[in-house]
Design a protein around this nucleic acid. Structure first.
Length: 570
RNA sequence: GUGCCCAUGGCUCAAUUGGAUAGAGCAAUUGCCUUCUAAGCAAUAGGUUGCAGGUUCGAGUCCUGCUGGGCACGCCA
């Protein structure tokens, strides 16, 4: 149950006034606090404390309130009855499903094929996955899209590079046979990875090569049999490696791996829509859509539908992708999760969608996350100056975990080590405000003490261990709780509220930080409150076991929202 | 040049979206393992929230102006 909401609703009902309920930072003040008196004082022209005195008796009438008092400038602090808390705690792990389920498309990942995932894909993947899980847990119909970069100029570059390496391959010959089997030409992914960077570097200095890549891109898109056959050879290699990482990160698989190539199929209907509304204009040989408005204070360049060479730009493919989603899912809402540097692009895109009458702007949302920087404040790079590969980063954390385990003399299997490493990596990412840049420091990610993912797992592992040892027990109907137990119950009863606001405000850090807060209280409780010792009476023992059970349920669900699993031991 | 974002202990981050005494972790110092897993617990120290004004019962949070940094601004995605 959502204690906050329950108390808030009852309080407002009693006072006939919508007041803001707060959880005091300092628990000594009480369980909850309201500034109702201070807000009312303004309109009534009275002293806040005077009004608080009038409200106090009414609040004390509420059956779940054990005590209420006035403090400071006019806050009314209240305490909840222990029996009520204990009863409520039994359903602390339940998530209240939304009253208005929506169909929500989520666009995250957006991986480029023929280019391995690197650190720049970490946030969109992890945060996107968690938002998806949150939405689903709340009862929305979530549909995820990996809008892959699989049809642009980078494809032409890769093919041009392969042509340079193997001009003798059949794909480049006049008498190419499209019916033959070419799967034997598939290259290892490590090799494929080098093609695009090499090609891009060459294209910078070699105009002829660049031109060749552009021609190939156009011919590929126009159905050139050889290039398409080659494309179909290396795409599966890339997709397989993508899948591997998705699994390693324990992400839910994408509902749709549909990118630019799929979107491009809808060029015709989209162009027709634009023409019908008379939105396409000629400008310097290109075709554009003007999205600037009179009230704009900031620069608002037009949307480029087709460049002067006649090729579709990503502005265009994004409109087409939007069209595709409209005619297939017809979602109530679409969330795009990308680097914040693309904010302007999405603002433009949303304006086109509105001009076309496809979606109102309120249905489209872009979440721009901050970049992951190194200690120098610039985007994180490895020593050789390249963006660190996601596989390398995962390996790095796994190695650190393995060393840590070896040092302690523990023996843990590989599966456990993977779980711990993943917790370290994901918790680190999720615990930051997703809209701000953050600094990726390997030494911090590979240390597992304190505010880290392994700390969370460790806490859960210890609780499970106690439950295993305890065996069966009866959950008491009432409970006499000490401070540590009560504090923990209060925090556990904040689970539902945390989930709701994490999704509402698209703040995945709330989930991660909540997990940490719970663990801190659990560990204090664990340390101060013995359970299986002989001198603990049955009643206390059962109460504490029941509390641990609730804590494990809540922690388990919280970890599940982050795509993390609790090991058996660590 | 125009616009958007950011600035909080030595370091990395919080602060219930305007609330009470600005909280955690790391690093430092110090206690606690024969007792449910020490990847833990507890304690000490560390702050004029970049600067200057303003708004109000109340500002790290909102407004204005500085300073310093990041990003974006039609044929790359």
């Amino acid at each position: 149950m959502n204690l906050y909401k329950y108390v808030s609703d009852k309080l407002n009902e009693k006072l006939g006034f919508v007041a803001k309920l707060e959880v005091p930072r300092n628990r000594d003040f009480g369980d909850f606090s309201t500034n109702a008196a201070m807000v009312m004082a303004k309109s009534a022209g009275k002293n806040p404390r005077e009004i608080a005195n009038e409200l106090l008796p009414k609040i004390k009438e509420l059956d779940f309130v054990s005590d209420a008092s006035i403090a400071g400038p006019g806050f009314i602090n209240l305490k909840i009855k222990d029996d009520f808390l204990w009863n409520a705690a039994q359903t602390a792990a339940e998530i209240t499903r939304t009253a208005k389920p929506m169909t929500i498309d989520m666009d995250y990942g957006a991986y480029n094929v023929a280019k391995s995932l690197h650190i720049g894909h970490l946030r969109t993947s992890i945060v996107g996955d968690t938002l998806y899980r949150l939405g689903r847990a709340l009862g929305h119909k979530m549909i995820s899209y990996n809008h892959m970069g699989d049809w642009g100029r980078s494809m032409g570059m890769v093919i041009a590079w392969i042509e340079r390496l193997h001009p003798d391959w059949p794909f480049f010959q006049e008498n190419f046979d499209p019916t033959a089997d070419y799967s034997g030409y598939a290259m290892p992914v490590a090799e494929l990875d080098t093609y695009y960077p090499s090609a891009a570097a060459l294209a910078k200095t070699d105009e002829k090569f660049m031109e060749r890549a552009q021609i190939i891109t156009a011919e590929l898109q126009n159905g050139h049999a050889g290039y398409n056959a080659l494309y179909n050879v290396f795409i599966p290699v890339s997709l397989r490696s993508m899948d591997e990482i998705i699994q390693k990160l324990n992400m839910l698989p994408f509902d749709n791996n549909l990118g630019e190539r799929n979107a491009a199929k809808y060029a015709e209907p989209v162009e027709k829509l634009l023409r019908d509304k008379d939105l396409l204009q000629q400008s310097d040989g290109a075709e554009i859509v003007v999205v600037k408005r009179d009230e704009d204070k900031k620069p608002m360049p037009p949307v480029m539908f087709r460049n002067s060479r006649g090729a579709s730009t990503y502005d265009a493919t994004d409109i087409m992708a939007l069209y595709y989603r409209k005619i297939t899912d017809n979602p109530d809402h679409i969330i795009y999760l990308t680097d914040s540097r693309q904010s302007l692009h999405f603002e433009q895109l949303f304006r086109v969608a509105k001009l076309l009458g496809m979606f109102p702007e309120s249905a489209l949302e872009h979440i721009g996350y901050g970049t992951i920087n190194g200690t120098d404040g610039k985007p994180f790079k490895t020593r050789d100056g390249n963006a660190a590969g996601l596989n390398d980063i995962i390996d790095m954390v796994q190695t650190a975990v393995r060393e840590r385990v070896a040092e302690s003399g523990k023996k843990l299997d590989d599966e456990t080590i993977d779980k711990i490493a993943l917790a370290a990596l994901k918790f680190n990412d999720l615990s930051h405000d997703l809209r701000s840049d953050y600094i990726f420091e390997p030494s911090q990610i590979t240390s597992f003490e304190g505010r880290t993912g392994p700390y969370i797992l460790y806490t859960a592992v210890r609780l499970n261990s106690v439950l295993r040892r305890a065996g069966k027990f009866d959950t008491p109907k009432t409970a006499t709780m000490g401070t540590d137990e009560r504090n923990l119950v209060m925090e556990l009863l904040d689970f539902d509220r945390t989930v709701q606001s994490a999704f509402d405000s698209r703040a995945t850090d709330l989930v991660a930080n909540y997990a940490y807060d719970v663990c801190q209280l659990v560990n204090t409780f664990y340390h101060n409150c013995p359970i299986l010792r002989e001198d603990v009476d049955t009643e206390t023992r059962n109460m504490r076991l029941a509390l641990i059970k609730i804590a494990v349920d809540v922690l388990g669900k919280t970890l599940d929202l982050m795509g993390l699993k609790i090991p058996v031991e660590m």
